[in-house]
Design a protein around this nucleic acid. Structure first.
Lengths: 236, 236
DNA sequence: AGGTTTATTATGTGCACTCATATTATCGCA
DNA sequence: TGCGATAATATGAGTGCACATAATAAACCT
């Protein structure tokens, strides 16, 4: 018996599936108020706790809107979401079965342009570690990255041999962060990027900008340009 | 008392916060086995159920790896994720405070190119509704979309006046779907897209391709090209 | 009628108990 | 020593109960 348990009662996943079925079948149409937990529990022959967990899960998935005393209603538009794992290039390449190469192109310690300092919410004269690097997959250019690191938040980074290990891998292993922002876009390759990526200037490149924070302190800002033709696939 | 309850016991969110603190402080270092639920409950003075919920939440967020009998260990790399809401252009534009305009550029009912039929897992001769449309924000081009709809999955779409309401809005309101795929990328504007978007051919455009399914049946495949300079921001 | 207080209601959360299930470790035997 | 059966263990899950909390509806008093 797939979805049944002792005495024919349903488990929380079975309750969730049944509720989702009713939503999709429009038995519970968009915007409608659904029966309360106690009634559903009685109808389905399980405990209220079980119904609670099922409905809480559906609310988290964006199908239901729940409020105390107000009851539970079906969202008018399901509002689906896709999950984007924050990529670690090295792992991404190796997961594809490719060999990961890495070349540090430049390394400087100095305040960045005003726009960068502002993006990090730092005074214009705060020195930052500026890295430019190239990730390779099977010896072909894969990602060109331009990174700024705040040494105040990560003093140890200054002693790391970044020609041997890429900053992303090192940071992921050694520096926790609390939250971040991510911006996706498309841009034309500039001269420097085109040279590094071995493509023509002006080629359309997929771009990802990432800014991470450790509490109130900015950790690192990185802009990555992906090789021409790169596609990022997600499921939802 | 912010995080306390009756008798000084912690609630599940407080337990989660404490566990997260220990992970970030490296009191529980990456890869380490943490105390079992019963011990933690005893230490924190709450029920095992409460600890269970807290740790389950952290596992869902990617901080912990749990397995029966194996115990709970801290993930070596936290593996963070960003949530990408599947956009509905009209709502996105209006949420920005802009006015949403829409123009249907073409509408045909015929089988598509082999690549499209294959992407939808349909025989090469299945007729599809092919739409090209332009979304405007404050009367300026915003998104150019090229859409294929499977009339077998959505017969009613053939009777809808798609010059008045955009297909996305109509589909979201009238057709449930079970899952989908999404591909992000960057591409150069071709002649037709450039003309519609009022930019030069070859301009780098952010691209989103979306394919939705209703159980085993493909519903719609849409390729959207966003206006030059478009940036998609997310938090994590 | 108007506004404030009070009761009602549905969900949110916690606890103690019970059993299920997936592993892992251990024991016993050849 | 090697291998299969068995016991031990940590998490997964369900139930019944109690109480907390937020939002609403009803009662109440000017």
């Amino acid at each position: 018996m797939p979805s049944e348990r002792r005495g024919g009662a349903l488990g929380w996943q079975a309750v969730r599936d049944e509720a989702l079925r009713r939503i999709r079948a429009r038995e519970w149409p968009p915007g409608a108020l659904i029966p309360n937990e106690a009634d559903l529990a009685a109808e389905l022959g399980c405990a209220r706790t079980t119904v609670n967990r099922a409905l809480r899960d559906l609310a988290g998935a964006g199908y239901l809107d729940r409020r105390r005393k107000g009851g539970t209603r079906v969202m008018q538009t399901p509002l689906r979401k896709a999950i984007l794992p924050i990529p670690v290039i090295r792992q991404e390449v190796e997961a594809r079965g490719g060999s990961h190469g890495y070349r540090l192109l430049s390394r400087h310690l100095a305040p960045g342009p005003a726009a960068v300092q502002a993006r990090l919410s730092l005074p214009p004269d705060t020195p930052l570690l500026h890295l430019r690097a190239l990730h390779l997959i099977d010896d072909r250019p894969y990602v060109h990255e331009d990174r700024w690191i705040n040494p105040d938040a990560v003093p140890a980074i200054l002693g790391v041999d970044l020609a041997r290990i890429d900053a992303n891998s090192w940071l992921v292993q050694h520096v926790p962060f609390t939250h971040g922002e991510l911006v996706l876009g498309a841009g034309a390759a500039d001269e420097a990027t085109a040279a590094a990526m071995d493509c023509l200037p002006g080629t359309a490149l997929f771009t990802m900008e990432r800014l991470t924070w450790l509490n109130e302190a900015p950790v690192t800002l990185v802009t990555q340009h992906f090789a021409p033709g790169y596609r990022l696939g997600l499921s939802f």
